[in-house]
Amino acid sequence: MSDAERLFESLARAIIDADETAAVQLSETILAKGFDSAKAIERGISVGMEKVGDFFEKSEYFIPDLLDCAAVAERATAILRKGLAKEPVSRGKIVMGTIFGDTHDIGKNIVALFMEAAGYKVLDLGKDVSARRFIDAAVQWKADVLAISTLMTTTRGNIQNVIEQLRLDGKRESFLILIGGRAVTREFAQTIGADGYAENAAETIRLLDKF
């Protein structure tokens, strides 16, 4: 294993352990030694966050752990970005938000952090987002994916409004629709004509990678 690979692996470990001091030191070392920052992000930060997602799926990590690890990943990414000759090619552009009528956004925020760590560009519209806002943002930003979440059973029907409005606008085929959140299921996604459903952040990334 090369010195660079060893550093990337240690960086992944620092992300998994939410060890901010180590992550900062490793990122600065990678920069100082002139190693490839893009590879460090991909093989250190993305790999680390992927493992964090696995731990969440196995109930070894919980929401505070995800947030803690994601904060370290953000810090390390900010350092490594200084070493990028140009912005890395995005793996895809995602417009996301919590659906109209719902203000629960902690899950959506975590998924956004994972998407960014995995190399996707994310435009987070926040919470209580109307169908029109989703669609306008996706069109203007030339998004590939619309990712919509809801925790509340009372608002999940509003996700269908986005899909119907896209059809009315003749733009349904322009975007993949991914849904998630406690109030929705795989079956619900199929019923309303969404393209995919993910139960958590790790599954979201796996699904996006397949799209």
Binding site: A18, I63, P64, L67, D68, A71, I106, N109
Partner: peptide, 11 residues
């Protein structure tokens, strides 16, 4: 806020 509370459990 639940997000800040969650982060604060560690920080």
């Amino acid at each position: 806020g639940l997000e800040t509370l969650s982060k604060s459990l560690y920080k």
